[in-house]
Design a protein around this nucleic acid. Structure first.
Length: 783
RNA sequence: UGCCCGAUCGUCUAAUGGCAGGACACAGGUUUCUGGUACCUGUUAUCUAGGUUCGAAUCCUAGUCGGGCAACCA
């Protein structure tokens, strides 16, 4: 359960943890959040922090904060403090002390020495350009550095001298010796260390060589006993390197308990940007007022906007964790916000755009104090303040319409409306200036309608207001989405997509006097308007400044928008009818295998033999003749059981998935055993389900099909009476489902089939069970 | 285009061969001194085509679409 009462949802990362714990690979969970101290946290980081923190918390493990400070040129101590503050604000308490990658520089250096000693790393004297050129391209393999075969002793010496500051920046690097032809470019001898005579914010001048991310990060994790290293999807291709470094630099217990990396999709939001680089530009060019501008999705900006950490956390729970790229609707964040704010914000009255109302029936100079509760009936909290009713008051201009539309419940000539916590008034007259603008409403009030009294008649609308004399001027900043388009920068420079209306400053708002000493950072609901926070930067006593956190849901605005849309000139977006294409017959012959057959007489011959002599379809034959190991395997099976289509079917559908990472010759079962399996599977002695079960065992442990089936008691049940009894048992055990089935939920048939199959331990002959089941289920449904 | 990854309501996400579920959004309604809140009801989805299976979102094959990867950044 999270703090909004939403149950914590499972996700694939938690599945991994469950499996690791169950298998004893780890006895506890250690996670970490590893920011680089060169920028500010944003809501995307919040998701990552919450994922790491949440898993550690829920499994009784540890969560740590580690600064990945391996690049002295871009990192600064000031970011460290800001990041710590943001994470603490979010409510993710990390195990102290805070860690730093720079604490492990010695350990990393030792690991590098280990690799050099093993002949797995070398010092390269090439220039940056030469190294880049030698890396090759996605199409062509790289070429080896002339220094690649340097003897270990020489590498050791050079590495030590690099560390000892004997060489200038960029003159040499330490490279892993992996594979210059690797399809994953990151494995083409990646750089481990570079020379950089720069002052580090923590280690000062102690080092002049600094490790690179791929080398450092996994070692940091290992060093700290991290069990699960969660990161975002863009690090996916780096996992191979993560594994290579640890597998080669670690040994013994440390290797056995080493961390593993798992990637999940980062958070994307529409109508905003989420990158350090873009934030910097927005700030530098003055499009926003700093890293904490309330329109920015930085945690600092969100905080200043008045967004609560509770809402962010709830949001993170709501969106879940998965591996597919996604863009989350901002409405979800707003929902979480409103839910949180509704329960915690006292209600006050504030008029954004004042329109004067003269209550002509109210005595000049008279002032009535009204005790107004801070909370609506449905928020169970206590407290109230005093507001004052006078002859001159203000209402919001938006609440008056000279010619109101259908369904309007607010002020209009001749209309009655309730003033929140006050009286019912009627608009008697409207005063305008020379230009025809409405400047004042003349209203009369009904003294019998004071708040709390029962009113005889129905008044549809309630409107907020403040007394002209007993109210304070204030500034209200109305924030909206920063960008006008969902994907800024998709079609042009992203700053051109900024929405000029993202901030509207209302300078002449008026708020009730009880708010005189409202504390910076405190949040209120301005009734009927939205949630607001007293700005922590600019608000001062006597000069109150409020930021709009989020509007209230506004169903009336929705009605009006819809009315506008159904106006005659409405644009209809019609798509050209997509012509139903005739199902074009497609060949499903794999190109790779076509090429393989062209290059191998053995494969080509097998293909011919399978299709002409053995009656195997061209498609299946294609799949069987992609590599020689598989052909040898299939031939061995066919020698035992010369039923081509059957062998092909079982091979294609059940064996192929096992051959994605290995060849047929590496399987624990041989072709002959497989042939005997197919013979058994086709003999009617086993159900298909039982046969698959047997095969799964053989693929895992080897063995003989007959023996495995016998040991498990697998033998197809075809006795109708026995099956009928099984059906009866299942129906009796699931009366609710039976009722629902008879009620029309026929998709439950699969459920019942599953239950019968389970009860028979996979032995019931499905073709017999199904009619039995259907008959029993249907007979009573039509009595 | 080499390698890797992904595709389920409008959006996010469950279902690990057996009832396609939840949330947000949307639509309608009830309650209401906030057109707020709360509550009720409803609409809507397995990328395509073949195959395996009693049964496929899930397994196999081919394709389509989307994303990532070639810094001495992280």
């Amino acid at each position: 359960m999270n703090d909004a009462g939403r149950p914590t949802r499972s996700n694939f990362l938690r599945d991994v943890v469950d499996a690791d714990l169950a298998a004893g690979r780890h006895s506890t969970v250690v996670t970490r959040f590893p920011p680089e101290p060169n920028g500010f946290m944003h809501i995307g980081h919040a998701k990552a922090i919450w994922v790491n923190y949440g898993i550690a918390r829920d499994y009784g493990g540890r969560f740590r904060l580690r600064f990945d400070d391996t690049n002295p040129e871009t990192e600064e101590a000031r970011y460290v403090a800001a990041i710590e503050r943001d994470i603490a604000w979010l409510g993710c308490d990390w195990e102290k002390p805070t860690r730093h990658a720079s604490d492990y520089f010695d350990f990393m250096y030792d690991a590098a020495v280990t690799l050099v000693r093993k002949g797995l790393a070398y010092v390269d004297d090439q220039t940056q350009e030469e190294i880049a050129a030698g890396r090759g391209t996605i199409k062509e393999p790289g070429t080896a550095s002339p220094f690649r075969e340097r003897p270990a002793a020489e590498n050791l010496d050079l590495l030590a001298r690099m560390k000892a500051s004997e060489f200038p920046d960029g003159s040499r690097v330490l490279r892993a010796k992996i594979d210059m032809a690797a399809p994953n470019l990151l494995l083409r001898d990646p750089i481990l260390y570079r020379i950089r005579h720069a002052r580090h914010h923590r280690t000062g001048d102690a080092w002049c060589i600094y490790p690179l991310y791929d080398f450092a990060h996994c070692l940091e994790d290992a060093c700290e006993g991290v069990t699960h290293s969660f990161c975002s999807l863009e690090f996916e291709t780096r996992r191979a390197l993560y594994d290579w470094i640890l597998d080669n630099a670690l040994e013994g217990e440390a290797l056995a308990r080493r961390p593993h990396q798992y990637e999940f999709a980062r958070l994307n939001l529409p109508y905003t940007v989420m990158s350090k680089r873009k934030f910097i530009r927005l700030v530098a060019e003055g499009h926003v007022c700093g890293w904490d501008d309330p329109r920015l999705p930085t945690l600092a900006g969100l905080r200043r906007r008045g967004v609560t950490p509770e809402a962010i956390r709830d949001f993170c729970d709501m969106i879940g964790v998965a591996r597919s790229n996604s863009v989350v609707d901002v409405g979800k964040l707003e929902y979480c916000l409103r839910e949180d704010l509704n329960a915690r914000c006292p209600r006050v009255l504030c008029v954004l755009r004042p329109l004067e109302v003269l209550v002509t029936t109210w005595e000049e100079g008279a002032a009535e104090e009204i005790d107004a509760p801070y909370w609506p009936r449905d928020v169970p909290r206590e407290g109230s303040r005093t507001i004052t009713f006078t002859r001159r008051i203000y209402v919001d201009r938006d609440d008056f319409r000279e010619s109101p539309p259908k369904g309007w419940h607010r002020l209009a000539p001749g209309r009655e409306v309730r003033l929140r916590h006050g009286y019912v008034i009627r608009v008697d007259d409207v005063e305008k200036d020379a230009a025809g603008n409405v400047v004042r409403l003349l209203c009369s009030h009904d003294p019998a309608t004071r708040s709390g009294q029962v009113v005889g008649r129905k008044v549809r609308g309630t409107v907020h207001w403040v007394s002209a004399e007993h109210s304070l001027p204030c500034e209200v900043r109305l924030y909206d989405r920063l960008f006008a388009v969902a994907e800024p920068g998709a079609e042009r420079d992203f700053v051109l997509d900024l929405d000029p209306r993202s901030l509207v400053i209302v300078e002449s708002a008026r708020i009730e006097t009880s708010m005189k000493d409202a504390a910076p950072g405190s949040r209120y609901q301005f009734e009927r308007t939205g949630y607001f926070v007293v700005d922590e930067g600019d608000s001062a006593p006597g000069a109150l400044v409020f930021n709009r956190i989020v509007t209230l849901r506004d169903t009336w605005a929705k009605v009006e928008r819809k009315a506008a849309r159904t106006a005659p000139q409405r644009a209809v977006t019609e798509r050209p009818p997509t012509a139903a294409e005739p199902a074009a017959p497609r060949t499903t012959i794999g190109e790779d295998r076509v090429r393989a057959r062209a290059a191998s007489a053995v494969l080509a011959a097998a293909f011919g033999r399978y299709t002409t002599e053995l009656g195997i379809s061209a498609e299946d034959a294609d799949r069987l003749t992609g590599d020689e190991a598989l052909v040898a395997f299939v031939d061995a099976a066919l020698a035992v059981h010369p039923n081509g289509p059957a062998v092909a079917k079982w091979t294609v559908n059940e064996l192929l998935r096992e051959l994605k990472d290995r060849t047929a010759s590496e399987l624990p079962l041989g072709g002959a055993a497989f042939g005997r399996f197919v013979a058994l599977a086709e003999s009617d002695a086993l159900t298909a389900a039982a046969a698959k079960d047997v095969l799964a065992t053989m693929i895992r442990d080897g063995g003989e099909a007959e023996a495995i089936a016998a040991a498990r008691g697998l033998r197809q049940m075809t006795d109708e009476d026995a099956l009928a009894a099984l059906v009866e048992d299942v129906l009796a055990a699931h009366p609710d489902e039976v009722a629902r089935y008879r009620d029309g939920k026929t998709s439950l048939l699969g459920f019942f089939m599953g239950q019968v199959m389970k009860a028979s331990r996979g032995n019931a002959k499905p073709a017999l069970v199904k009619p039995l089941l259907a008959a029993r289920l249907d007979e009573a449904s039509t009595p």
